[in-house]
Nucleic acid binder design. Structure first.
Lengths: 336, 336
DNA sequence: CGAGAGCGTTTGAACGTTAAAATGCCAGTC
DNA sequence: GACTGGCATTTTAACGTTCAAACGCTCTCG
């Protein structure tokens, strides 16, 4: 484990010169720079991050609270999100530090502690809830953070955020279904209380209205839980009540899977008799048959924006960014 | 942001005494301790981790490479694993640092760099591959690490590991199926090359043999990919070839889901006509209908053991631990 | 009653780095 | 030839903590 001192001795310069070679190479005369660089390589020197952080008081670590879902349910795309987040962080020389914390106010001491002890520079928040207490608190404490997900039903949300336009995604699904000949499009949703659900429902509604398709309350079903079973039961009820339904936009891949199952039980062919779309383009979507058309959140872009905002030195650019999802068309909505 | 110095001034003791109050309270006279503690609380002092780490050269961070699955497939239980790992790390005052790295030898520089720059004390490896190069390399470099998963087909594996006894899990599934009246139990597997597959296959085989049930090659099907479709096709082939099959042990929940789908297509009732079991007890298992009997890996215990081994100061206890999974019985194997 | 041990506390130094100020050198200017 | 300005490099001092040694006090015991 070489130190600056040893490299300096080897290159016959002062310690500071070696430091400059790494952090401000333009300050060195080309020949000196080359000599120092050679010594660095020869000794396989790596700067000690702790010493650096102590001096600069920046740890280059970003805290992320690993979500724990109350119902034991997994975030099917968390893998992808974490991977993108890590990659983005790394491309700016930072890393992600994971931690656990209780949801709501009880979790705040954990955030405070991590920041006060200088384990992280800031936080990326996800699983944003209505009236999430974290945003206000962090802003007040002047702890840097950025939120993945808007706090819903608030006119203004404290602090910067990045989110995906779920409404636009659902509207795009509706448009795609209309273009492929569908005329009676149902919507499979979560409980109405959820802000996420409201956003996506609105997209379906507006999409239908703009195309002159029906979008009445009887075409929207609110499932109480996000399970395949619930999706299947909802689909059954919808089809029983209105056999004319020829497409179903589901608010999640899981509910869409339920729809697929119910269709298959009824000897209906998904994608032919009734088209189905999901949301999130989880790994499941491409693994079922027919493969599921789904709305993909641009994970890489989300991650890049999050890190961008969090690590911006000067407050450049907007700090509220709504990204567009992408409709991935597969067999469940367009056979062939 | 209070520092030791300020606390010391406030409590009218030396800096070292405050440090001792935190790290070796037994050295202080009770009244001094109390006075210092009061000052610490009053000033809301938190030790600066960087300074501490610089001095002690221990960062209390554990590196974990966030897996990227080549086929874009998600690890359905990664959530749970990460959550358990974080919780275990935290209960020993540590945290998890995430990073990305290419698989195989090309990833080694990343590990080296993280360790050399003192970003982490050691590593938890997962996604262990046959002849995984990381283990040997890390051992040689004397970088602390522990592996989740054995390196297969090696008589001795460099370094400590924790793993789950997949064979025992599958044997337990077979036993359960036999007890509930099943006599012809098929096995749905991955490609034979996989060590994981071999382990679990062996469990099924031995389980059947011990109970006097058939376990010939014709009852084991090796799917080329881990998809619902592949599982369904395999189930179709198995049932076509041998209509007497009354139970299927699948090596993954995904394949089991395929089996369920094929059964339903054939108007057979899972759990009544043919019993089905999966592996991993992923969130999907409880979300399908009938709910899927599955073999759960003890995530909390795995995480605890991993952290235990990695952070043990003295080499206490065995550093190769094989944990027992648990069979979670649900409707797909025991209706009612 | 003086030497030695034990305890609680302080002092001095170091961990490896970087910011800021100081230094020395050289070329250009009047 | 002294004077200025600019550049490359070095010196000094810190960042906040802990280790190791030293200190001074009290107690024990021969």
């Amino acid at each position: 484990m070489a130190t600056l001192k040893q490299v300096a001795a080897h290159a016959e310069v002062s310690v500071q010169t070696v430091s400059n070679a790494l952090n401000a190479p333009h300050r060195l005369r080309p020949d000196t720079l080359q000599r120092v660089t050679r010594s660095i390589q020869l000794l396989n020197y790596r700067p000690n991050r702790n010493a650096r952080s102590l001096r600069t008081s920046a740890v280059e670590l970003i805290g992320y609270c690993v979500p724990s879902w109350p119902n034991g349910q997994a975030h099917l795309v968390m893998d992808q999100f974490l991977h993108s987040l890590c990659a983005s962080a790394e491309s700016s020389g930072r890393h992600i530090l994971l931690f656990t914390a209780p949801v709501g106010v009880e979790g705040m001491p954990v955030y405070e502690d991590l920041h006060a002890r200088r384990l992280v520079d800031g936080f990326v928040l996800s699983q944003t809830e209505t009236h999430d207490p974290r945003h206000g608190w962090l802003k007040e404490q002047q702890v840097p953070f950025v939120s993945f997900g808007r706090v819903w039903k608030e006119s203004t949300q404290p602090g910067p955020w990045v989110d995906v336009d779920g409404a636009a995604g659902c509207a795009a699904a509706v448009r795609h279904l209309q273009e492929t000949g569908r005329r009676r499009i149902a919507f499979l949703s979560w409980p109405e209380a959820s802000g996420l659900a409201e956003d996506r429902l609105t997209g379906w509604q507006r999409g239908c209205q703009e195309l002159g398709l029906p979008s009445g309350r009887e075409l929207a079903f609110h499932c109480q839980e996000d399970t395949i079973d619930a999706g299947a039961r909802a689909t059954a009820e919808l089809l029983d009540a209105d056999p004319g339904i020829d497409a179903i936009v589901a608010i999640s891949d899981i509910l869409a899977l339920g729809a697929l199952r119910e269709l298959s039980r009824r000897r209906l062919t998904a994608g032919v008799d009734v088209a189905v779309t999901g949301f999130d383009d989880s790994p499941l979507a491409s693994v079922v048959s027919p493969a599921l058309t789904s709305i993909r959140q641009p994970m890489d872009q989300i991650a890049t924006e999050l890190i961008d905002i969090l690590t911006a030195t000067a407050p450049a650019g907007p700090t509220e960014r709504l990204l567009q999802p992408e409709l991935i068309v597969r067999g469940s909505s367009a056979p062939g």
